[in-house]
Nucleic acid binder design. Structure first.
Length: 238
DNA sequence: GACCAGGCACATC
DNA sequence: GATGTGCATGGT
């Protein structure tokens, strides 16, 4: 029942907003950098930081590995928390360079949950950042959960508020891995590769999009594409 | 000027 | 386990 609502939400959101083509970024490495920089930060500020990195030819594993936290902090200043994030970024790049030779293909060949544990052991890489890297930079079938996911699905009666991050992640992964649903996706959507990866990417992006523009007010506004789900048993509008 | 944004680590109870 | 706090810029 919960899972059916999650699948229904995907269809409603996709119909409303269309494909989001996430993650913005030219290369897997840029996506990884963006994942760290966007922690608790609006994307437009991250864009400025990435633009600065590009302008100074510092957007590469070898450059970030080499320069100091202080120098890096100056460049990424617009992203906020810059002293913290400069060190976090260097910690991640150190891991990426020393463990995988800065080769994302080698990284992607590692078993997904093993790689997830490795990422989580890096200081400054938490669950959402690790999962963003896995899904969007490495095309691994991991669903990214965030504050919007909790906020929205709490109101829709899908979540109780007591679930842990990983419980929510697994619930969405399971709901969106339904074979009948994936066949529907394969038949009606234009994409390449693993259908789960495609759906996980779009679903998270749609949740963020929807969270930004709708359902911030109480009660749910009339244009909310999810109000139909809300009326199902358990939602706040029932 | 307050409030928030695509978190995370750490302290404290 | 739950809850509180620091980290900081830039847009509404």
């Amino acid at each position: 029942m919960k899972k059916e609502r999650i699948r229904k939400a995907f269809k409603l959101l996709f119909n409303k907003f269309g494909p989001q083509f996430w993650w913005p970024g030219d290369t897997p490495f840029e996506i990884m950098v963006g994942a760290v920089l966007t922690q608790q930060t609006a994307w437009r500020n991250v864009e400025k930081a990435i633009k600065n990195l590009k302008a100074k030819n510092k957007l590469s594993p070898s450059e970030i590995y080499r320069i100091s936290c202080a120098e890096l902090a100056e460049i990424i200043k617009p992203a906020g928390f810059y002293n913290l994030k400069a060190c976090r970024l260097k910690e991640f790049v150190k891991f990426f360079v020393e463990k995988y030779g800065a080769d994302e293909r080698k990284m992607a060949n590692t078993e997904t949950l093993k790689l997830r544990e490795e990422l989580l052991s890096v200081r400054g890489i938490g669950k959402e950042t690790a999962d963003s890297i896995l899904l969007y930079a490495l095309n691994k079938p991991i669903f990214v959960t965030d504050a919007y996911t909790k906020r929205i699905y709490l109101r829709l009666g899908v979540l109780s508020g007591r679930e842990t991050y990983d419980e929510i992640r697994k619930l969405f992964e399971s709901a969106l891995s339904d074979e009948e649903f994936l066949n529907y996706i394969r038949d009606n959507f234009d994409f390449e590769g693993d259908a789960r990866v495609y759906v996980f990417k779009e679903m998270h992006a749609l949740i963020v999009r929807e969270g930004k523009e709708f359902c911030k007010k109480k009660p749910l506004c009339a244009e909310c594409p999810l109000k139909e789900i809300c009326k199902m048993k358990g939602g706040e509008m029932q």
